[in-house]
């Protein structure tokens, strides 16, 4: 018996070893290094010249208007993206739940953008949306537009355009999560509500939405954590400044520019940490709002 317990303990650690090593090398140490570097003025090409600058990088980051511009841009983008994807995802999930035939065909089609790479999808999107592309030509020909829109050079359009692109790319994930949640709701609840004379909207707000809450919380949290770190979408279309008005500048693009173009790794580390703090604050606020209603 004792021998068995010992055997299980040893194999327990042995089987966990990959994760323990992975955690130490690729997660814990980098986080430690990130803090350490944020206090240094360091260039990777000659690290021996690293200089301790205290909280200098942090102060510089907090005062850096371009960094805050990038934070503003990504929040602007996420506000549109999250609302749009939520409506499309939930709407299509509600429709798919109603039909009995062909549901799997629609699910398959809707998932195609999810499996496509951001780089490939962005090449297609840029072609479709550019001023000489099919969509604008069509809108011009029916008179919906007066003149072509150079959206990548505009001050306010890049973020909404990218939000539309990302909704197209990711709505299916949310749809499938919501659909799973919808199937788990006991139909007798709806039957009871119908007997009581509740209309569709009342059923939706009083039964569907409250019972979908776990899925909604999950989707919104994951969206925010991932969405705040947008990079490839803007990198494929904009220069490292994010276009003439910095309207396409996201925090990660800015961090990439600082770290790998300007080669100031210490400052880039500080920006990374500041961004992580912003994400933490925003997810906490979101969490508080989503859990408030219960009280």
């Amino acid at each position: 018996m004792l021998k068995n317990i010992r055997r299980e303990t040893i194999s327990g650690y042995l089987f966990s070893l990959p994760w323990i090593l992975y955690f130490l090398i690729f997660l814990l140490y980098p986080i430690f290094l990130s803090f350490k570097m944020s206090f240094l003025d360091i260039n990777i090409v000659n690290p021996e010249k690293a200089r301790f600058v205290g909280i200098g990088n942090w102060i510089k980051g907090i005062q850096d208007s371009l960094f805050w511009k990038s934070i503003f841009n990504i929040i602007y983008n996420q506000a549109i993206f999250i609302a749009l994807t939520f409506i499309i995802g939930l709407g299509l999930a509600l429709l798919l739940k109603e039909i009995t035939k062909g549901g799997s065909i629609f699910r398959t089609i809707y998932f195609l953008p999810v499996v496509t790479s951001v780089a490939a999808a962005m090449i297609i999107f840029e072609f479709l949306a550019n001023p000489n592309g099919p969509i604008q030509l069509f809108l011009l020909s029916i008179g919906f537009l007066d003149q072509p829109i150079y959206w990548t050079f505009s001050e306010w359009l890049p973020m909404p355009m990218l939000a539309v692109f990302n909704s197209w790319k990711w709505f299916a994930v949310q749809m499938i999560i919501f659909l799973g949640g919808l199937y788990n709701i006991d139909p007798s609840l709806y039957e009871a509500a119908r007997v009581d004379g509740a209309r569709w909207w009342t059923q939706f707000t009083k039964i569907t939405l409250p019972l979908l809450k776990p899925q909604i919380v999950f989707v919104l949290t994951m969206n925010l954590i991932n969405g705040m770190q947008m990079f490839t979408e803007v990198f494929m279309v904009f220069d490292l400044e994010g276009g003439p008005y910095n309207a396409g500048l996201t925090p990660v693009l800015y961090l990439y520019k600082k770290g790998f173009d300007d080669m100031s790794m210490g400052y880039a580390s500080a920006i990374g940490l500041l961004l992580a703090i912003v994400i933490l604050i925003m997810t906490t606020i979101q969490w508080k709002i989503l859990h408030r209603k219960e009280n």
Partner: peptide, 11 residues
């Protein structure tokens, strides 16, 4: 957030 690991992992 993965972004936190980017610079230090590169280094």
């Amino acid at each position: 957030p993965a972004i936190l690991l980017l610079i230090p992992t590169y280094v």
